[in-house]
Design a protein around this nucleic acid. Structure first.
Lengths: 323, 323
DNA sequence: GCTGGAAATGCTCACTTTGAGTATAATGGA
DNA sequence: TCCATTATACTCAAAGTGAGCATTTCCAGC
């Protein structure tokens, strides 16, 4: 075999974006370490060990060992080369590769290790939460991005930057597309608006920067995960991996809203979920939280057999708006 | 940093699914080697070399060197661990990881190295081509799969297999979903209907097996690529990466049909393409191939600005049928 | 027990999108 | 000149969507 896929020997790491959802916040499992007054936040990550039969099994094994969190749904996200990560950082001779995974879990165990903390992912991406309308934070961001585009080295580069900003932030005809999480983060990184930029260039750490920073490229991995999950709920019934066995339609809607960061039209949301046959009655009624008690439903697994793409197809672009 | 993503030292390979499309066949670049009477077919693959700045640049560099084929659109597909690949094969101590990429190219250069050959991808997946109706090949496949399910070790396993077959091959309510290429290949592999199964178990190579086999797990990688591309054309304008600068709507339609393996309703296809603003007139008229001459159009790049998901949204499931 | 607030649920209606046609136009070749 | 062949135009019903209003059923407070 002339070209058989053997190559340089590198060290391989696995990292995991472990997502849960309380009713109002999408949560991600993070590890905190370093000085207590200035902690570093990171994603759980571990080495790929030789005894693991497959990548995914290796991931499950150390995550369950390290965080005592059983993983349900697991999906490979992306493989990052070390030098995809840092702007001008010099490449070590024996550099690492990281295979990143997205995992969805139902129960939020009270963090096994003391360092493991569940955080709302909007801690890292405050501009991604449009549930209470357009985040005010976006005004200064857009102004700074416009400056960055204006300061481009060349004319072609300037136009390119302008187009990227327009698309990612939904400025002109394009409206806000909640899936473009990575594109937005990368623009902020390149424009020097997140503190990772200065750090990766070896410059003095400024406390400024929008959103909370993470170790190495973990915020980039998280952005990839958020975008992927926001896309996936539209055509696969993955939200249910985050829901308890029985739930109300309102709980389901609030979870979807938490993940996607936008508000949905209530009546149309229920019409969609029921028409699609995504749920079935349990017969029970929930202890009300205020008004009329709600029916409890459960995920209807048979839907996987019936429809090719059973999801909450909230079409990107013109989409259900707030009730 | 307690868990920093360093791990076992493994060798890393890159492999590429390089896709082009003639008007009637989707093509993939393959390498043939071995005995001329019994050649082995493989995807181009190469080592990740230390001097490459990023994974993607490494890929471009050796593909362009080895096949003298310039890559346009490139997208990471999946990372395969060595032991994801082979059923019961013993794991070598220093096993490899392969990062697979999908690349789309326009020109089909007359293969730089003598071993590089463009092949229709239906050579490897004859059951995936429904352009002339349901492939007759599917009848024996389905019968064999049913036998395999019936021969399950346990009751739960049997039901699981039946459901997987139903979904992947669109038997009951579910209709044929052209994106489930990998799911179908994996069923055939597990059921021992492709010759890779016997090979990987160290058994005698039988000449039988449906479709042409490839080296190691390359057919699995190819299946991943075909499924990914079939999905992607629906929401991103990637087909145009495969088209010449100017083309007719019929050419575009035949290319999409070649990729997706299904026939589309002509009038509705053009309505979609034009309404979506995916193309614009060049003003020229094509040298007709038979009937009335057709307008030549080109891809309208501005669409990327206007629509969040500009693709030929041929919805899975109930879909445009043959004219 | 009546009343008002808060959800949950039910229903309507205009508008767009889609699937599936029929009809007409412009070629080249028999 | 007629015809097969492809391109293009237009129609129409059914389904799907966005945005409402209306009604039901609980609780809390009087």
């Amino acid at each position: 075999m002339p070209a058989s896929g053997r190559g340089a020997a590198l060290s391989i790491g696995l990292s995991a974006v472990i997502v849960a959802a309380s009713e109002h916040e999408p949560r991600v499992l993070t590890i905190r370490f370093g000085a207590p007054d200035n902690p570093v936040e990171a994603l759980p990550a571990g080495p790929l060990e030789a005894e693991h039969r497959t990548l995914e099994i290796g991931l499950r094994s150390w995550v369950e060992r390290q965080t005592s969190q059983r993983l349900g749904y697991v999906e490979q996200l992306y493989t990052f080369g070390d030098r995809d990560r840092l702007g001008a950082a010099p490449a070590p001779a024996n550099s690492a590769l990281t295979v990143a995974y997205l995992a969805l879990v139902r129960e939020v165990v009270p963090d096994g290790s003391a360092e493991a903390v569940w955080q709302s992912w909007y801690r890292y991406f405050p501009w991604e939460d449009w549930r209470d309308g357009r985040p005010p934070l976006l005004a200064p961001i857009e102004a700074a991005l416009a400056d960055w585009a204006a300061a481009s080295p060349g004319d072609a580069e300037r136009r390119l930057r302008e187009v990227r900003i327009q698309v990612a932030f939904g400025l002109h005809a394009a409206s806000w597309n909640e899936e473009l999480v990575l594109e937005r983060y990368e623009l902020l990184y390149e424009a020097g608006l997140v503190s990772e930029t200065a750090r990766d260039q070896g410059q003095a750490q400024t406390a400024s920067g929008v959103g909370v920073a993470m170790a190495v490229d973990h915020r980039r991995i998280l952005a990839t995960a958020v975008g992927r999950l926001r896309g996936k709920i539209k055509y696969r019934p993955v939200v249910f991996e985050l829901m308890p066995p029985a739930f109300t339609l309102s709980q389901l809607q609030r979870t979807v809203e938490a993940l996607s960061g936008v508000r949905l039209h209530k009546q149309n949301f229920r019409r969609l979920v029921e028409q699609q046959g995504l749920v079935e009655e349990t017969g029970e009624i929930s202890a009300a939280t205020g008004g009329r008690p709600a029916r409890l439903v459960r995920f209807r697994r048979e839907v996987l057999l019936e429809r090719p793409a059973p999801g909450l197809r909230l079409r990107a672009g013109r989409r259900m708006t707030v009730a």
